[in-house]
């Protein structure tokens, strides 16, 4: 068997931790911890991007890494922590599915993702193509996190985790998107979070809670 270079092993380790963090998010019910896991996921993404930038010598990846560090490790978690403190949401209510059940679905999802990513990974010429399956798994796990939660805040964390998966996917398949697109996407995410901040206060003002049960009155036949 061919010996894998050390930096590539490190990259693969980052990818594996990314996936583990997704599982941890699936099980975590404390919202503060959920945000910390998200920040940790951002940090893994940052390390992976730096390693890849160093390995391939592509300068735009350094910019991308800086963007990840600034936005996903520092700005967004900080914003979410401020919101959590101001809105005083600590725990998510009981999820729609119990933790073992969600984990089982998560496992099936990972197998499915690797199957889905297989044909693309074979075509890819990047060193990181094996991580593509992990990227798809992170996206789908984040999706499951979103649909099994009831608190608006947890859904948003799931949404951002999905975003992390997308970035990781772009990186492992093509060494990142063109710079102008990455800037645009980052800007959109930042604006989305600001809009959400405003939005949360509006919901709170109206319902005294961020529980999404309150948001189920618009039915089709109303």
């Amino acid at each position: 068997m061919q010996h894998t270079p050390f930096d590539l092993q490190l990259l693969n380790a980052c990818a594996a931790i990314l996936l583990l963090l997704s599982f941890a998010m699936l099980a975590q019910r404390r919202i503060v911890a959920l945000v910390n896991l998200l920040a940790l996921q951002g940090a893994m993404l940052f390390i992976a991007t730096m390693l890849l930038a160093w390995r391939t010598g592509q300068n735009h990846l350094y910019v991308s890494a800086a963007l990840t560090l600034g936005l996903k490790v520092i700005a967004l978690p900080w914003l979410l922590h401020v919101l959590i403190k101001r809105l005083n949401v600590q725990w998510d209510s009981e999820p729609l599915l119990n933790v073992p059940g969600t984990m089982l679905i998560g496992l099936v999802t990972v197998v499915f993702s690797f199957g889905l990513a297989q044909p693309i990974a074979e075509l890819a010429s990047t060193a990181t193509r094996n991580s593509l399956g992990i990227a798809v798994a992170v996206i789908l796990l984040a999706f499951i996190t979103m649909i099994t939660r009831r608190k608006a805040m947890s859904q948003v964390v799931g949404f951002l985790s999905m975003e992390n998966g997308l970035f990781f996917g772009a990186m492992s398949a093509t060494y990142g998107m063109p710079m102008i697109v990455e800037f645009g996407v980052a800007l959109d995410v930042l604006v989305a979070m600001l809009v959400l901040g405003v939005f949360f206060f509006q919901i709170r003002e109206q319902f005294d809670s961020l529980d999404l049960h309150n948001l189920e009155s618009l039915k089709e036949d109303q």
Binding site: A152, M162, L166, M177, I203, N214, S217, L218
Partner: peptide, 26 residues
């Protein structure tokens, strides 16, 4: 309340939807 619910649905459904489109673009 109804408009907040509509806004939340709009945000999250279109957000998730458009995340799929980003993967498609990648």
């Amino acid at each position: 309340p109804a408009s907040l619910e509509a806004g939340w649905k709009y945000f999250i459904l279109c957000g998730v939807g458009i995340a799929q489109a980003l993967f498609g673009t990648i």
